[in-house]
């Protein structure tokens, strides 16, 4: 069971695709208002875990409780209406819609008229710094702008839990600091964040607590310092990353 402090409780979660065990017996809890970081090498199961929490995949074992309610069998749209929002590793803008219309789409399940949706979308478009691009088609945006658009769209669902999948992934170096500041500002709104991030510096800076995954299993959980100094993490991830150059470090 979740305590009053826990917004999300994941218990014994697992999923297999044929013979491949993508996530195996993973349990963790996320406290309300914190930033929880997921770290792990490629193929560790981070995005799969995200898809399980958001409902895009259904687990073969284990339970997911959100605010004390078992959401394991619910579809993504039901979870969204309960207060779980997400962004995508590879951005999924509504390409033929404008920036404003993309964010308005978050209001379809929450408002009755287009005017209400437009009014509700406005502050989120401004919050992510796309006010000047309000009427641009989403397909005309740069990768960094698409990441911002997804943040606005997800925040416009008024979530209590927001899953951010590699906010800085595929973004040019110059745009990364702005995105990090934006994520830091998101937490001030009180939303609980779960981050997947390849960029070690980014996730260390933003997270209150972290979990380290490898080959679908949880290896460690703790503060960023504890994770950074955990022997398994050092050998598996930091060691490899240091050896491979600063890209992932």
């Amino acid at each position: 069971m979740t305590t009053g402090e826990d917004i999300l409780a994941v218990e014994g979660l697992g999923i297999r695709f044929g013979g491949l065990v993508a996530v195996n017996d993973v349990s963790f809890r996320v406290r309300r208002g914190e930033v929880f970081g997921l770290l792990g090498p490629n193929g560790a199961g981070k995005t799969t875990l995200f898809n399980l929490i958001a409902g895009a995949l259904h687990p073969t074992s284990g339970r997911i409780r959100f605010e004390g309610r078992d959401v394991t069998g619910l579809r993504p749209d039901r979870r969204s209406r309960l207060g779980i929002a997400r962004t995508f590793q590879i951005t999924q803008p509504f390409a033929e819609l404008t920036v404003e219309e993309n964010v308005m789409a978050a209001g379809i399940a929450r408002h009755r008229t287009l005017a209400e949706m437009r009014a509700a979308a406005g502050p989120f478009v401004d919050m992510v710094g796309l006010g000047a691009k309000r009427h641009a088609l989403a397909k005309e945006l740069s990768t960094g702008q698409r990441k911002r658009l997804e943040l606005a769209r997800a925040m416009a669902t008024n979530p209590r839990l927001l899953l951010l999948d590699e906010v800085t992934g595929g973004v040019d170096q110059a745009s990364i600091p702005g995105l990090i500041d934006l994520v830091a500002r998101l937490r001030e709104t009180g939303v609980t964040l779960i981050l997947v991030e390849h960029n070690m510096r980014v996730i260390m800076r933003l997270s209150d607590r972290m979990m380290f995954l490898n080959r679908g299993e949880k290896l460690a959980e703790g503060s960023p310092d504890e994770i950074a100094n955990h022997p398994d993490v050092v050998s598996l991830y930091l060691g490899a990353a240091h050896a491979g150059g600063p890209g992932h470090a």
């Binding site: 749209d77 929002a85 999924q92 819609l97 399940a109």
Partner: peptide
């Protein structure tokens, strides 16, 4: 098309996963 239904339809066309993640019942 020019109603919230139209907005939902175009959103579903452009990305079913994203539309569903925003609470749209596909």
């Amino acid at each position: 098309v020019k109603s919230p239904v139209g907005l939902a339809l175009v959103a579903i066309r452009d990305s079913q996963d994203a539309a569903e993640s925003l609470g749209i019942n596909l």
